[in-house]
Design a protein around this nucleic acid. Structure first.
Length: 618
RNA sequence: GGGGCGGUAGCUCAAUUGGUUAGAGUACCGGACUGUCGAUCCGGUGGUUGCGGGUUCGAGUCCCGUCCGCCUCGCCA
């Protein structure tokens, strides 16, 4: 490509810029051939870049012969530059395009990069190719306007975050990616040290301790848009490598952090979608679990869950009795205590067919429940399913559940933890089956969930684990009681409520945080309850315990899951849609082929030997 | 680690109960065409049905194994 005085790449406009006001101008555009319509002596080319599409016209009558010959060979996704004159479209406007009133009559054409036939065309009209192919040719996939829009949205969100928190006195500070292993919590990615044989770094699950240290360092308010790593199996909304909008504030209680975040959410929705977020309501963890069976309730529909254990106790029905006998001596919300949970489905008698409700039982087993009992209310009484067992209790149940003729009631009987979880999942499934979930953009149900328990018992080991993380403080009004609480008294420990908070949107957790412990005595007690000896605590977290002794301000913070946030704002169900270069279910990057092998010399440098031997072939 | 769904032309899909030479649209190649805009019209190339084994007179279709992708349970302080 010869470049004379004028570079053939020096654009005067983008492909989304030209308007009738530009008519008569000589312009130079660069971009990709989005489509071409070849009429022989008249050729139309839609030229595309990130900013839009502009129609080019090659006309043999008033164009040079060589240009026409060149244009005749143009194919989708060729990269070209053209110069020519803007004019009003001769064939009438195209209302689908922002530039649809004008066209560029091309005088000169440079083919900057001729493409081979691409495996798929990056348009939003045709059916998406399978995801494997999209990920393999990510550079093609990202050319699609929809993907460009999401990339742009993500950029705007992080910009708004930086602006908002800057205006509120936050300092953006980077923290290490090569960190130290803290094996509590998620499985970690490890990095061997070359300079210290046998020693390892870990990639951070979050910058949690660094941001606390920054508060102790007097930074007052910290922000970071940071990458976090958790080596766990992915889900539709979860990747091993993900991003957080992470922040921490000094001299605050939970109200201050929540207010700051609420302001951010309000600003985001306003600027990104033009939507006003009303004051965000709050709900205790206990209420969320009791009424919705989950700690992140989706409030876009009703379907509250009821505990009907006391009524069910009177039923001559073995499934109920067997469940209720379990842990009967345990306190009310003990995870081991048997309960019967019920869900009223208004109008379910007609919509929830036998086939659907039969499916619920199979599906409930994946959550460890025995099944789902079903009954329909007709004017004549209960019908189908377990009707004969509970008909004597019809009056009580109808009152307790506000049942109307035409409703279906679903029951799960099991120990509290299983029944609650199963019912919570069932509620969401029923909402989908009943068509109660609004389509994207129609409802934004924000919710703060607060008053989480400090600790939960691990069901396998029987040990206490921190519900949030070990640096979460007890709720403001419980600090003294916590320090005084005898470690051996399970009921007291289980009743301790933390100063944590989760921000939930439409049933998905988009942010979570807490006020942190800033008192070394409290921190030591937490470590002790978690089963760490003072020596172990010292080994793992000496830097934090030390720092807490050198003048630690009260502080708290929160982290927004950036990827999930973008999913909500973009209206996609798939986290890979909001990450430029995502990984597959098996942690592979199909474009770069990571992970891949390394040489034995590399391993030797790192003082590492692989124990992996490929399975023998035949 | 468990469960489910999928893999057929470059791409998106079809192929009856296991039965002829595996089809269509699109892309690609060639041709026609001066106002299209997902241009149109005519013609053409293109297939190890993911891979390996098995059952069968006969396998895209059934069985076993395996690879890849997706969803999910466990897991995700």
């Amino acid at each position: 490509m010869s470049t004379t005085a004028a570079s053939p790449y020096r654009r005067t406009h983008t492909c989304g810029a030209l308007r009738p006001a530009d008519v008569g101008r000589s312009v130079l555009l660069c971009g990709w051939v989005n489509s071409y319509r070849d009429h022989g002596n008249l050729i139309f080319v839609d030229l595309r870049d990130r900013f839009g599409i502009t129609q080019l016209v090659f006309d043999r009558e008033d164009g040079a012969h060589e240009v026409q010959e060149l244009a005749d060979r143009l194919r989708n996704e060729d990269v070209i530059s053209v110069s020519g004159k803007v004019r009003i479209r001769v064939g009438g406007p195209n209302p689908k395009l922002a530039t649809g009133e004008v066209e560029v009559v091309v005088g000169a054409l440079h083919i900057l990069n001729k493409t081979v036939a691409p495996p798929f065309l990056p348009d939003d009209l045709s059916a998406l190719p399978n995801e494997e192919l999209r990920l393999t040719h990510r550079y093609l996939d990202l050319r699609r306007p929809r993907m460009q829009q999401i990339l742009g949205l993500r950029h705007r969100v992080t910009k708004i975050a930086r602006d908002y928190f800057d205006e509120n006195g936050f300092l953006e500070i980077e923290t290490p990616v090569l960190y130290k292993s803290t094996p509590e919590g998620a499985r970690e990615f490890l990095v061997p040290s070359r300079l210290q044989p046998g020693e390892w770094y870990a990639l951070p699950q979050s910058p949690q301790l660094f941001k606390q240290i920054l508060m102790i360092a007097g930074c007052d308010r910290y922000l970071q848009i940071c990458r976090c790593f958790r080596d766990e199996d992915p889900r539709a909304d979860r990747q091993a490598e993900f991003s957080q909008i992470d922040l921490e504030m000094s001299f605050v209680q939970r109200e201050d952090v929540m207010a700051m975040m609420e302001g951010f959410a309000r600003r985001l929705w306003k600027e990104a979608l033009g939507i006003e977020v009303p004051p965000i309501r709050r709900m205790s963890y206990r209420e969320a679990l009791e009424t919705y069976g989950i700690d992140r309730p989706d409030l876009r529909y009703g379907l509250p869950i009821a505990d009907i254990s006391e009524i069910a106790r009177k039923a001559d029905f073995k499934v109920f009795q067997d469940a209720l006998i379990k842990g009967a001596d345990r306190p009310r919300f003990s995870s081991k205590r048997g309960v019967v949970k019920a869900l009223r489905v208004p109008g379910g008698a007609e919509k929830l067919t036998r086939k659907i409700t039969d499916g619920y039982t199979e599906w409930a087993k994946t959550f460890g429940a025995g099944g789902v009992a079903v009954v329909k209310l007709t004017p004549a009484g209960f019908e189908t399913g377990i009707a004969k067992f509970i008909e004597p209790l019809r009056a009580e149940l109808t009152a307790a559940l506000s049942l109307q003729p035409g409703d279906t009631a679903l029951f799960v009987a099991d120990v509290y933890s299983v029944a609650t979880k199963t019912m919570g999942e069932l509620r969401q499934k029923v909402a989908r089956d009943m068509g109660l979930v609004p389509e994207w953009g129609k409802a934004w149900e924000f919710l703060w969930v607060i008053d989480f328990p400090m600790f939960e018992k691990n069901k396998d080991t029987g040990k206490w684990v921190a519900s949030h993380h070990p640096f979460t403080a007890p709720r403001h009004d419980q600090q003294a009681a916590f320090v005084a609480a005898p470690e051996s008294d399970e009921d007291v420990i289980e009743s301790m409520v933390s100063a944590g908070y989760d921000l939930v949107l439409n049933g998905s957790e988009i942010a979570g945080g807490s006020v942190r412990i800033h008192d070394p005595a409290v921190q030591s007690k937490v470590f002790s309850l978690l089963g760490l000896t003072p020596q172990q605590a010292q080994e793992k977290f000496s830097f934090l315990l030390d720092a807490l002794k050198f003048g630690a301000p009260p502080h708290g913070g929160i982290a927004f899951g950036l990827d999930r946030l973008i999913m909500h704002l973009a209206g996609t169900e798939n986290i890979r849609d909001v990450i430029a270069f995502p990984k597959t279910q098996t942690g592979a990057d199909l474009m770069t082929h990571a992970p891949g092998p390394v040489t034995s010399a590399q391993l030797r440098d790192l003082h590492v030997a692989s124990t992996w031997t490929p399975p023998a072939k035949k």
